[in-house]
Simulated assay, not measured.
Amino acid sequence: MDNIRETIKEVIMSIVPITIIITILQFTLIWLPMETFLQFLIGAFMVGLGLILFLLGVNVGLQPVGELIGSALSKTKKVWMIVLFGFILGVVVTIAEPDVRVLGTQVDSVSGGSIPQSILILSVALGVGIFVALAMLRIILNINIVYLLIVGYTIAFILALFTPATFVPISFDSGGVTTGPLTVPFILALGVGVATVIRGKSSSSDGFGLVALASIGPIISVLLLGVIYG
Results as ranks from 00 to 15, higher is better:
Val177Ile: 04
Met136Asp: 14
Gly70Arg: 04
Asp206Lys: 09
Val47Gln: 00
Gly191Ala: 10
Gly191Leu: 03
Leu161Lys: 14
Ile220Ala: 06
Gln63Thr: 13
Ser14Arg: 11
Ser74Cys: 05
Gly43Lys: 04
Ala214Ser: 15
Leu223Asn: 08
Ile140Trp: 12
Leu62Asn: 05
Ser123Asp: 07
Thr179Asn: 10
Leu38Ala: 11
Arg101Lys: 13
Thr196Ser: 13
Arg199Asp: 11
Gly61Met: 14
Pro98Val: 04
Ala212Asp: 14
Thr178Pro: 05
Val83Met: 04
Ile20Arg: 00
Gly112Glu: 03
Val100Lys: 02
Leu148Cys: 08
Glu6Lys: 15
Leu53His: 06
Ala195Gln: 07
Gly193Ala: 01
Ile82Asn: 02
Ile4Trp: 13
Ile187His: 02
Glu10Leu: 13
Pro169Thr: 09
Ile21Arg: 00
Gly207Thr: 05
Val11Asn: 04
Glu6Asn: 15
Gly176Met: 08
Val124Tyr: 00
Lys9Glu: 12
Ala72His: 12
Phe162Arg: 09
Leu56Asp: 00
Ala189Asn: 04
Val110Leu: 15
Gly209Leu: 07
Val60Glu: 13
Thr94Tyr: 07
Thr7Gln: 09
Gly127Arg: 02
Thr7Phe: 07
Leu38Arg: 12
Ser202Tyr: 07
Ala165Lys: 14
Pro169Tyr: 08
Val194Thr: 10
Thr36Lys: 08
Glu6Thr: 11
Thr179Gln: 11
Leu53Pro: 03
Phe131Arg: 03
Ile119Asn: 10
Val192His: 05
Ile219Ser: 10
Ser174Lys: 01
Gly207Cys: 06
Phe40Leu: 14
Gly90Tyr: 04
Gln106Pro: 00
Leu120Asp: 05
Gln63Trp: 10
Gly57Met: 03
Met13Ile: 13
Ile187Gln: 02
Phe208Arg: 08
Ser204Asp: 11
Gly175Trp: 05
Leu41Ala: 11
Phe87Leu: 13
Lys77Thr: 12
Met1Gln: 13
Gly193Thr: 02
Pro17Arg: 05
Gly112Met: 03
Val92Ile: 15
Ile4His: 12
Leu122Met: 14
Thr166Cys: 01
Arg199Ala: 11
Val151Ile: 15
Ser14Glu: 10
Val58Trp: 02
Ala165Glu: 12
Ala195Lys: 05
Glu67Met: 13
Ile20Asp: 00
Leu56Val: 02
Gly226Pro: 12
Asn3Gln: 15
Val151Asn: 00
Leu182Ala: 14
Ile18Phe: 08
Val58Glu: 03
Thr19Asp: 05
Gln63Ser: 14
Ala125Pro: 05
Lys201Glu: 13
Pro185Arg: 04
Gly50Arg: 00
Glu97Arg: 03
Met46Tyr: 15
Glu35Leu: 09
Leu126Ile: 15
Ile216Glu: 10
Ser71Ala: 15
Arg101Gln: 12
